[in-house]
């Protein structure tokens, strides 16, 4: 029983991080119709910003969060201005945009590889700041990362939700998501909305990356590794739903930790099959509820993402 509870705690911890990563992917896809594979690289960028500040400037973890957010956000905006905006003005299909984002992810990832190799940082090293156990409940370790990440995720998601509902910019974003042509006709500057969307999504990915790099390690592939789980989380939200993505991220980590734990305990399934769990959960949920899990919670009409 304790083991199940401890796996739930682990699921909560990584679920919160995957949620922060996946929100951005959903935002760009829902608002701008850009399936941005390079989104995973913003996680790596944020991670390396945090890694650099911790190891070479002696910052504590919490102080690196904001720089990581801003830096990744700026990289995301730059990738929009340099690549996605020119392509958008040419009215290319969604999947051309996907291929372009694949190219962007190659450029970002291997630029990081170049920097890491040139600076002799080493691949897959642990940052100087490590996770620590703050206290234990019945032997289950509660780490400082969990205590930082959970509140931040809650605050960020609530703030972002209020931002989307209450503020003018948020309303503009939702208007663009519903009907870009109508938004233009109503005098909304779609370009500004796009820049803001990219900044927020990239920033959130970078924020998650700052924690992720301390939770795991600094390697130019950390984003790529997380990508398939980010996609799964976003898919569970039907690629358009904000709460759906959040719940999707927790379902993915729950499958990897708790479900895997139960299967291992009761059916002797090898732990090496752990990466299988998010995939199977994605297939099962999408086959049963093709529009994602959000249908369970909201009655909003769902826009069609793909043709």
């Amino acid at each position: 029983m304790i083991e199940i509870a401890s796996s739930l705690v682990r699921a909560l911890q990584s679920g919160a991080l995957y949620a922060l990563m996946a929100i951005g992917l959903t935002l760009t896809l829902a608002i701008l119709k850009i399936p941005n594979i390079a989104h995973a690289e913003y996680v790596t960028v944020g991670g390396y910003v945090s890694f650099y500040l911790i190891n070479f400037a002696g910052f504590p973890l919490w102080q690196t969060v904001l720089p990581a957010f801003i830096f990744s956000g700026v990289v995301a905006v730059l990738s929009y201005l340099a690549v996605f905006r020119p392509l958008k003005t040419r009215k290319v299909s969604m999947f051309i945009l996907m291929v372009a984002s694949f190219a962007v992810s190659l450029i970002i990832r291997y630029s990081i590889y170049t920097i890491v190799a040139a600076a002799n940082w080493g691949f897959g090293v642990k940052p100087k700041v490590v996770t620590n156990v703050v206290f234990r409940i019945a032997g289950i370790p509660i780490t400082d990362i969990l205590l930082m990440v959970l509140p931040i995720t809650v605050v960020v998601t609530v703030t972002l939700y209020l931002f989307m509902i209450k503020t003018l910019q948020g309303k503009q974003m939702r208007a663009v998501a519903d009907d870009p042509d109508l938004a233009v006709v109503s005098g909304i500057n779609v370009d500004n909305v796009a820049v803001l969307t990219f900044f927020i999504s990239g920033g959130l990915a970078g924020l998650a990356g700052a924690f992720w790099v301390v939770f795991t390690h600094a390697h130019p592939d950390i984003g790529l590794e997380a990508l398939i789980r980010i996609i799964a989380a976003s898919a569970l939200g039907g690629f358009i739903s904000y709460p759906g993505t959040l719940i999707g991220a927790f379902i993915v980590t729950l499958a990897e930790n708790t479900v895997m734990d139960i299967l291992n305990r009761n059916f002797g399934l090898s732990l090496a099959l752990k990466p299988l769990m998010p995939m199977i959960i994605t297939i099962v949920i999408l086959v049963l509820r093709p529009a994602g899990i959000t249908g369970l919670f909201s009655r909003q009409p769902r826009g069609r993402v793909a043709r």
Partner: peptide, 20 residues
């Protein structure tokens, strides 16, 4: 034996199993 899939970045579940 506690096998694990290499090349991941999160080994918390495997380490918990090892401890158990």
């Amino acid at each position: 034996g506690v096998p694990y899939q290499p090349d991941q970045s999160d080994y918390t579940a495997e380490v918990a199993k090892l401890s158990e």
